[in-house]
Computed example of a mutant assay.
Amino acid sequence: MKLRSDLVLRTIGSDHLIVDPSQDMIDLSTVYTLNSTAAWLWEELKGKEFDHTTIVELLRDNYEVDAAQAQSDAEVLLADFERQGLLEK
């Protein structure tokens, strides 16, 4: 899977927002807010093919998190990305 290439991560202050830059005026109903870890993962994954295991490895390599927690966090993140339409089909 891949992240949608038409979306851009913008950081405003401490907020991380996913926006569609092709919109003439930003529709705030289609702006997605990420926490700092999800924003970091977005940057690591953009433009790349990845799967659940990729996210688990990134979390384990860069954060002090055990395998079970990394698995759970990766599942939640992917489910959120899919539900919000942030992944390419």
Results as ranks from 00 to 15, higher is better:
D80F: 08
E49L: 04
L78C: 13
E75F: 11
I18P: 00
H52A: 09
A70E: 05
S14K: 14
I26Q: 14
A70G: 02
A74R: 04
D61K: 15
R60Y: 08
M25L: 14
H16N: 06
P21I: 01
L9S: 01
R60D: 09
R60H: 10
T53V: 10
W42G: 04
V56Y: 02
K46W: 00
R4A: 05
E88Q: 08
R83Y: 11
I26Y: 12
Y63F: 15
D27N: 14
M1D: 01
D51L: 04
L7H: 08
L59E: 01
G47V: 09
D24T: 13
I55R: 02
D73I: 12
S22W: 06
Q69I: 13
S22T: 15
D66H: 12
L59V: 04
D15M: 07
L3K: 02
E82I: 04
D27Y: 11
T30V: 15
L58R: 02
D15F: 05
Q71D: 13
A67F: 12
S36G: 09
R60F: 05
E82M: 03
L34V: 00
E64Y: 01
A79C: 07
V76H: 11
G85A: 01
T30Y: 11
A38Q: 13
P21M: 02
G13F: 01
E64M: 06
V19H: 06
R10Y: 02
S5C: 08
R60E: 15
L3E: 02
G85C: 06
T54D: 07
V8A: 13
L9V: 07
E43G: 12
A79K: 14
R10D: 04
I18S: 03
M25F: 12
E43V: 12
R10G: 01
R4M: 05
E57M: 03
L77F: 09
E49S: 09
S5L: 07
V19C: 06
Y63N: 10
E82C: 04
K89Y: 04
H52C: 10
G85K: 06
L58H: 11
K89L: 08
Q84R: 13
L7Y: 11
D27E: 11
Q84A: 13
Y32F: 12
L77C: 00
E82R: 12
L34F: 00
T11L: 05
K89R: 11
T33K: 12
M1I: 07
A74G: 08
V8D: 11
D61N: 15
N62Y: 11
F50N: 10
D51E: 08
T37I: 15
A79D: 15
L77I: 10
D51V: 02
F50A: 10
M1W: 02
Q84K: 15
V56A: 05
D20P: 01
K2F: 00
Q84T: 06
D15H: 07
T54Y: 02
V8P: 05
S22C: 09
L86R: 01
V31Q: 10
D6S: 07
V31C: 15
W40A: 05
K89C: 04
L28M: 15
E88G: 06
T11C: 10
M1H: 09
D24V: 13
I26L: 14
Y32P: 01
V19I: 14
G13R: 06
Q23E: 14
D80W: 04
H16Q: 00
L78T: 11
A79M: 09
A74F: 08
N62K: 11
D20N: 14
L34D: 03
D15C: 03
K89F: 03
